[in-house]
Design a protein around this nucleic acid. Structure first.
Length: 715
RNA sequence: GCGCGGUUAGCUCAGUUGGUAGAGCAUCCCCUUGACGUGGGGAGGGUCACAGGUUCGAAUCCUGUAUCGCGCACCA
């Protein structure tokens, strides 16, 4: 027996070598898998790794992603599939720019004072440097992905694919440049899609103001300067004497104005006084009303959230500062009817910084989503993609049923530049991949290059086929559509649903057969981890303290699909003990079977060992089905239980007696069983705890042994 | 407001088609047993949120209630 088993298991010594050995073997690359392993199956199996944001360090959630996928991938590889796990890194547009802006802020700099080109180069450098750290960290979780195929979302070929999709959308009339009301973050100074917005409940004063003969109500008096339309429901009996289009003069914030009566059934008669004034430039509902009646629209608040000259004496002020002053003025003018101080309502905020979203009218590129969504719905309803857990299917179809056009323009430098030209004169947008258009086709006006970049999800929505080299590569032909998309439930709309729509649109196929969604990794108390709370668990601290295997088990066991997991250090500690237990089981088995080799042709089993063999085999069938059905938590727990409480506590104990007092045949049989059960357990546990199993495997007395990672799955 | 999910041992959670409740950790007691004290043996602890219903039988199916969490939509 190797002397290493005389000491307790030391994960630090083992882990640093094993990953290198795996890498050197080349088996992470499906093209290098041995023929005899593939002979039994050989079908391709593919997981595209969700491209990791290259702007920070790995967090516990990444740990979970890597572990779940690695377990499945290692299992499939042992099952003889031509297994590809394709790793990727994400430039993560807006997310990364925010991270970098914070860094700039600390250094006393600001993106708004920088040349766009210089800023881009700095962020690129930052991202590339970080990418290397991230890769190292992914490796340290034991991820058996094919690094030779690593893709970055800004790689030339990816950008090329994204551009051709953009062009195709335009050619198919699914893309347009529209001047519409969009969500705008005054802090980050970019527009968003509807998904980057978070609702937040706030209690704010609510003002009832006198507007001519009416009382209108608002929580946003600072938007009201330009309001010159007063809207009510056509059926509202209280206001029958007012006719649509009637005009009246009234005193307003900054002097007399002429107001026009508008009748529109969007008005809720039950709410407030049933009358409101509208601010089409800064409110989506008002914008719609203005469109219906062809009303004028005027901007009141600028991109930085400051009031424009229309606000008169308040021009240049920020909203928060101006609001009380405006109310003060309205009070002096006798235009305030009453104020409700405790008005509870939801306001839209930037999901990243919490700044109140200021809707603005802007020209942006929009993708018409309805036609794409309809096709996706058809396929989803036909069961062509399986959701795990299945309630995500309903969540998805509901979202698709109510989908709105997707604003893919972002006013940030960090991203893929939109290959288009804009006419200065008439605002027409022209898709221009070759950068050759010079004159507007509509008005012959001069064109300028669009300075916006794509929403990062527009490019990552194409990731499965783009990363595989669509349309001509062998990889695309072999590995697409992929088998499993495993990612966080949080990005079901952002990413998963858009991949389905865009994948279907471009390739005609949903890019994956199964969607597996995991929940959040929370701290030991079940609270969301956040830097500000200081409860962030760094995976690398845990792996160095307890071992990667222990960390992986801690993430998997007790974690059901879609639900969040409270991760405690004690739990991980318990699985460190498990790795050591396995180590000691090996020590006992190897000393007990000295001189004996595993013989798969052995048949002279004792009655007792026949029973034990049966039990073990039924466990294997059981856990194989668990893995196939994504019950990793259950497979892991059953294997843990078997190794510790069946093999160690019972079988090993009982073997002491058999080996001492049994007949020659009984002893031989038991030695074979000990070897068979241990090697089998090592194989079955390998996907879960790859390091310690691979290390032990080196010393197993097995003929024609390969690396454990490419041994055949035992059932 | 609409929809979805949870509510099981002190804690974190399992419980796959209905058949007298399980795991890990924690607690308590015992064991210097030659694989392992990162160990072994044993114990305590649950009216499975509540109220009805279906059934020979319900943690599991149905209805309702409470409560927590999430998603979507919102009225200015």
């Amino acid at each position: 027996m190797n002397e290493k088993f005389l000491k307790p298991y030391n994960h630090l010594e083992v882990e640093k070598n094993i990953y290198e050995e795996w890498l050197k073997s080349g088996y992470f690359n499906p093209d290098n898998l041995p023929k005899d392993l593939l002979a039994k199956n050989g079908k391709p199996f593919t997981i595209i790794m969700p491209p990791t944001n290259a702007n920070g360090s790995l967090h516990a959630g990444h740990g979970l992603v890597m572990t779940i996928q690695d377990i499945i991938v290692r299992y499939k590889r042992m099952k003889g599939f031509k297994t590809l796990w394709l790793p990727g890194l994400d430039h993560a547009g807006f997310e990364t720019q925010v991270v970098y802006e914070k860094k700039l802020e600390k250094e006393g700099r600001s993106r708004f004072e920088m040349e766009p080109k210089k800023l881009y180069e700095e962020i690129l450098k930052f991202t590339l440097e970080n990418s290397e750290n991230i890769k190292t960290q992914i490796k340290s979780i034991g991820a058996s992905c094919d690094w030779s195929r690593t893709k970055f979302t800004l790689d030339d070929d990816i950008v090329k694919t994204v551009y051709s999709t953009f062009k195709k959308l335009s050619d198919d009339d699914l893309l347009y440049r529209g001047k519409k009301i969009i969500s705008w973050c005054p802090k980050h100074q970019t527009s968003f899609s509807d998904l980057e917005i978070k609702d937040e409940e706030k209690i704010e004063p609510y003002y009832y103001l006198k507007y001519g003969p009416f009382i209108i109500s608002t929580s946003r008096p600072e938007t009201k300067f330009g309001d010159k339309y007063v809207v009510m429901h056509p059926d509202d009996k209280r206001y029958v004497q007012y006719k649509h289009g009637d005009k009246f003069d009234t005193e307003w914030i900054n002097g007399p104005i002429t107001a026009t009566i508008i009748k529109d059934s969007a008005i809720d008669m039950e709410f407030g006084t049933g009358v409101m004034t509208i601010t089409p430039w800064h409110d989506p509902v008002d914008f719609e009303i203005a469109l219906r009646h062809k009303l004028e629209k005027e901007q009141v608040i600028d991109e930085r959230g400051k009031l424009l000259p229309i606000a008169g004496e308040f021009a240049g002020m920020g909203i928060n500062k101006a609001r009380p002053l405006i109310i003060e003025k309205l009070k002096t003018k006798g235009l305030v009817d009453k104020i409700d101080e405790n008005y509870k309502h939801n306001i839209k905020t930037c999901y990243k910084c919490g700044t109140t979203i200021e809707p603005q009218i802007k020209s942006q590129w929009f993708v018409k989503m309805k036609p794409l969504a309809l096709k996706a719905l058809e396929k989803i309803k036909a069961g062509e993609v399986i959701y795990i857990p299945d309630q995500y299917e309903k969540i998805t179809t509901h979202w698709l049923d109510n989908i709105i056009d997707w604003n893919i323009s972002r006013q940030i430098v960090w991203g893929i530049p939109i290959p288009a030209k804009i006419c200065d004169k008439c605002g027409t947008g022209i898709v221009d991949l070759e950068n050759k258009e010079e004159k507007c086709k509509k008005c012959n006006g001069s064109l300028r290059k669009d300075t916006d970049t794509f929403d990062t999800w527009f490019s990552s929505g194409q990731w499965p086929f783009a990363s595989l080299g669509y349309p001509d590569s062998n990889d695309f032909k072999t590995f697409y559509p992929t088998d499993i998309m495993e990612t966080a439930g949080e990005i079901i709309f952002f990413w998963v649903s858009r991949m389905i729509m865009l994948g279907l649109y471009i390739t005609g196929k949903i890019p994956f057969k199964t969607v597996y969604l995991h929940g959040l990794v929370l701290d030991a108390k079940g609270k969301k981890m956040s830097k500000s709370k200081g409860n962030v668990i760094n995976p690398l601290d845990l792996t160095s303290k307890y071992g990667t295997d222990a960390f992986r088990m801690g993430l998997i066991i007790g974690n059901t699909p879609g639900t969040s997991l409270a991760l405690s250090e004690d739990k991980i500690k318990g699985y460190k003990h498990f790795a050591n237990k396995l180590w000691n089981i090996t020590r006992f088995v190897l000393t007990s079977v000295e001189g004996e080799n595993l013989d798969r042709t052995f048949v002279k089993w004792s009655d007792e060992d026949i029973k034990l063999n049966k039990e073990l085999n039924s466990l294997l069938i059981d856990i194989t089905s668990d893995i196939e059905n994504f019950r990793l938590y259950m497979a892991g727990e059953k294997l843990y239980h078997y190794a510790w409480h069946c093999l160690a506590d019972e079988i090993l104990e009982q073997s002491k007696k058999v080996l001492k007092e049994g007949t020659i045949d009984e002893i031989k049989s038991r030695k074979q069983f000990l070897l068979y059960s241990l090697t089998t357990v090592l194989k079955a546990l390998h996907p879960f705890i790859p390091y310690v199993t691979e290390e032990i495997w080196k010393d197993m007395p097995v003929a024609n042994k390969k690396m454990l990672m490419i041994e055949e799955w035992p059932v």
